[in-house]
Design a protein around this nucleic acid. Structure first.
Length: 562
RNA sequence: GCCCACGUAGCUCAGCAGGAUAGAGCACGAGCCUCCUAAGCCCGGGGUCGCACGUUCGAAUCGUGUCGUGGGUGCCA
């Protein structure tokens, strides 16, 4: 697969470097060491399609004014055979370049050749990545934060795949530890209440309707027989009944949200197999633990943490981080992923360095663990923050959100902002079918293109292909801008993957749509000139390909009609 | 107290391996369909890039300090 943009940038760097070296050899510039320089796209297009700061960077080296160095380079540069048709020195000493017509034509040909693979890259080929996301507490329904995490994690996994990673999605089921105890206790009390026992729910138990329903359904099946067994046995039976139902519910709801996982990993397996305990043993063997007040502590300060922390409580139970250490040890060492990404709420940020410290102590390369922290979601309706659902009075769940907002809109909106920024989710805007809604803006661009092809079919002049000669006819500013942006997609995917930031793809979709709409208003496809018509339809076709690919990464539909 | 993130237009946010006159959407005001979808395009006003120092040819971008917001700082997860 050919990345035309990278090829052009490579040519540019080589051109200026060669010219600079020639100048030094010829004595036009003094001998000096070559420094790193930048090749970039100027913010203001009046300054060309590309610019480089090579002359400015070397000003000190050569004890020469940047603009003079730039002109010396310019004199010795031969653009023939490259993707550049013109170069000039400008400003303080920038060298500005103009792309040649064949750059645009070749870009379209490369889009056509790659088809639905356009935008993919083999940057991380041969590497395996695991993205763990949502991992909602299985003791209750998913909330709005899980909705953001779901959209983010799933799209991120897709971005990583397209950047070459062999990617898997995983849900970590927290079916061990305190919250399960609390779950059992809550079910237990609801069960007893069901039979008239006046026992009350403690403050910190789960008060949701779902717990009452589970207890009632359990009572329906088993009657009051569990009133007569030990509390521990009763709780265990209740958990064994309700937990699988909850997990199945999570799976079902996430599927509605277009998310399916490769694996559902149970925390309990880490306890049962002794792997959690093994972590503490290993750390102790390596001398990274000590006992104090009956608890086992990890020497986290030695690994850059603020404080040491407890691994095993004085009551003999492990703290929550121990199974987490075992879990990540499993990801990186036992299953051998090259990259493990955790998508977590920002309230977990203090925990990340501690987990990494423990992994480092175990001899694991903690750099392979990357954590994407996302800030809280602020739901907005009628310009005001919504905290609770009107119907239930409880926090709004993923399911109730999806009752109200189209899935595509939800997934798109949650990926509009970088993970680490607070996110306002405007319920009114998300359902609005108007120009204000960015989801429709992108989908409309796609539908418009499809409509053009339908019209051409109807009028008896369907698109039958485009040669490079025909593609060279695309010289309008709107055409060139659109093609130029198409050429950046492979690099954009790579940078989204490197930054673990799928929101770049959302922004790409919006910008691409915008450039298409501009082109559409400026240039008619249905023109008399058959060559120009072929070229413009080809541009439409390539735009549709790229837009569909990007929307596909977000799992947003690309409709043919709107 | 200490640690982390964030602070850019009225609102929501891009830009931040330092570069040329700081951008977009929304909102507000004015235009564009006898012609491929007006869910579109186009023009306009709007800014002390929180504040102050520092690094440099050059800082929204890097560093230090400071103020503001949110989060963390449990033998909770």
């Amino acid at each position: 697969m050919t990345d035309i943009m990278k090829r052009a940038e490579g040519q540019l760097a080589a051109l200026v470097k060669t010219a600079l070296c020639d100048a030094m050899e010829a004595g036009a510039l003094p001998q000096a060491e070559l420094l790193d320089f930048k090749v970039e796209i100027p913010a203001d297009r009046k300054n060309g399609d590309y610019s480089t700061n090579i002359a400015m960077v070397h000003a000190r080296q050569f004890r020469t004014a940047p603009i003079k160095i730039a002109n010396t380079i310019l004199e010795r540069m031969d653009l023939s055979g490259s993707y550049f048709s013109h170069a000039e020195a400008a400003g303080a000493g920038f060298l500005n370049f103009t792309l040649s017509p064949s750059y645009y034509a070749d870009t379209l040909l490369s889009v056509e050749e790659a088809g639905e693979k356009y935008g993919c890259s083999d940057l991380f080929k041969g590497k395996r990545a695991l993205v763990e996301f949502v991992s909602a507490n299985p003791t209750g329904p998913m909330h709005i934060g899980n909705a953001r995490g779901g959209a983010l994690g799933d799209s991120l996994a897709e971005v990583l795949s397209r950047a070459g990673y062999e990617t898997e999605r995983e849900f970590y089921i927290n079916d061990g530890g305190n919250q399960i105890e609390k779950f059992g206790l809550s079910l237990d009390i609801r069960y007893r209440q069901h039979f008239g026992d006046p026992v009350e729910m403690p403050e910190d138990s789960y008060h949701g309707q779902d717990i009452i329903d589970h207890a009632a359904a359990f009572a329906e099946i088993h009657g009051d027989k569990y009133l007569h067994v030990s509390e521990a046995e009763r709780r265990q039976a209740l958990i064994a009944y309700a937990l699988p139902l909850n997990i199945a519910g999570l799976e079902r709801d996430l599927k509605k949200y277009k998310i399916t996982y490769d694996t559902w990993f149970k925390e309990s397996t880490l306890h049962e197999s002794g792997k959690a305990a093994k972590m503490v043993e290993l750390l102790t063997e390596k001398g990274w633990t000590y006992e104090l007040d009956g608890a086992v502590w990890f020497k986290a300060e030695q690994f850059g943490c603020e404080k040491d922390f407890v691994l095993r409580r004085s009551n003999g139970f492990y703290t929550y981080i121990v199974p987490d250490i075992a879990y990540h040890y499993n990801k990186l060492c036992e299953r051998g992923f090259d990259l493990a990404v955790d998508v977590l709420g920002a309230d977990h940020h203090g925990y990340v360095p501690r987990l990494k410290a423990a992994l480092t102590a175990l001899g694991v390369d903690a750099e392979k663990l990357q954590v994407v922290l996302m800030q809280m979601v602020n739901l907005v309706r009628n310009g005001e923050t919504v905290k609770l659902s009107k119907r239930s009075g409880k926090a709004i769940t993923l399911v109730t959100l999806l009752d109200e907002v189209p899935i595509d809109a939800a997934r798109f909106f949650f990926n509009m902002r970088e993970a680490n920024t607070h996110c306002d989710f405007d319920l009114d805007l998300a359902v609005e079918q108007s120009s204000q809604n960015p989801v429709y803006y992108c989908q409309y661009a796609h539908a418009r293109i499809c409509s053009i092809f339908r019209k051409m079919e109807e009028s008896g002049t369907p698109f039958t292909g485009c040669t490079k000669e025909q593609a060279l006819l695309l010289t309008a500013a709107e055409e060139k801008e659109l093609i130029r942006y198409l050429s950046t997609l492979p690099t954009e995917v790579e940078s989204a993957a490197k930054a673990l930031d799928p929101s770049r793809m959302t922004r790409y979709a919006m910008e691409l749509s915008s450039l298409f709409h501009k082109f559409y208003n400026a240039c008619r496809c249905n023109v008399e000139d058959a060559d120009l018509r072929a070229a413009r339809l080809f541009l439409c076709r390539c735009t549709r390909t790229a837009l569909a690919n990007v929307l596909g990464m977000l799992k947003v539909d690309a409709p043919e009609n709107m």
